[in-house]
């Protein structure tokens, strides 16, 4: 077996462009998946039974079936319902639907970890539901949710490789194509692996940064906040 990166190196720019598609798919679908997942989580923790049930059903379906199937469904089966989508929008929709189901559950675990008594205390001072969510529940939930949320984000990044089956030229599809034409399978796959590792390392770093930012108790108030409150420096 001979390893020779010299034939593979010229393909790096193409692989980086492919990584651009991977990033596009992952970030947009994670964004939609987070926003929708947040509202689903609110629905899942709300009073009306039909709403809780509807969200439960959604999560049951989309977490219980493979994302590969969602991708196929939206790209290949949707046209028979009169809906024809390009590969990238189709992949983003399928990936968002899936991301949203997982994020709903992750965010719900954070919302529910905030003790109900704190919500009651906020109601007792006359805060409205949206304000309670914004000022009491979310700030605490975010911190609780960071580790599972980022874990899922990383998994989601790697799962974007499934979009190759609907012809999105992301890292895996591109790597496969190059490998097939150059026969430099090991080298090309190594490069693809390094690219994924780079992307997921960014997320790991982001997680560290977020965790550090949310440990306010140990660091106390910022100087700016102290000035706002008119407190002398500690």
């Amino acid at each position: 077996m001979n390893i020779d990166f010299s034939t593979a190196l010229p393909y790096i720019p193409i692989l980086i462009k492919a990584a651009g598609f991977t990033i596009l798919l992952t970030l947009t679908s994670q964004f939609f998946g987070t926003v929708l997942g947040f509202f689903l989580a609110l629905g899942r923790t709300s009073r009306p039974g039909w709403l809780r049930g509807a969200v439960w059903f959604y999560v049951w379906v989309f977490r219980g079936t493979p994302m590969l199937l969602h991708l196929f469904f939206i790209y290949y089966a949707a046209p028979s319902f009169g809906l024809t989508l390009d590969a990238i929008p189709a992949a983003i929709i399928a990936m968002s639907l899936s991301s949203c189901a997982y994020n709903c559950e992750i965010i719900r675990s954070g919302l529910q970890a905030v003790h109900h008594g704190q919500v009651e205390a906020a109601r007792a001072v006359g805060m409205s539901y949206p304000r309670i969510i914004r000022r009491i529940v979310l700030p605490q939930a975010v911190r609780i949710v960071i580790p599972p949320y980022m874990s899922n984000f990383i998994t989601h990044t790697k799962n974007s490789s499934l979009a190759s089956v609907v012809t999105v030229p992301e890292i895996m599809l591109t790597a496969q194509t190059i490998a097939n034409s150059t026969y430099r399978v090991i080298e090309i796959l190594t490069l693809a692996g390094l690219l994924y590792l780079f992307l997921t390392s960014c997320l790991t770093w982001l997680q560290l940064w977020m965790e550090r930012r949310t440990t306010y108790e140990r660091r106390g108030l910022t100087a700016r906040r102290r000035r706002q409150l008119g407190l002398e420096a500690a």
Partner: peptide, 8 residues
């Protein structure tokens, strides 16, 4: 009884 201060 249990205060319910907001810990954050």
């Amino acid at each position: 009884q249990l205060f319910y201060l907001w810990p954050h």
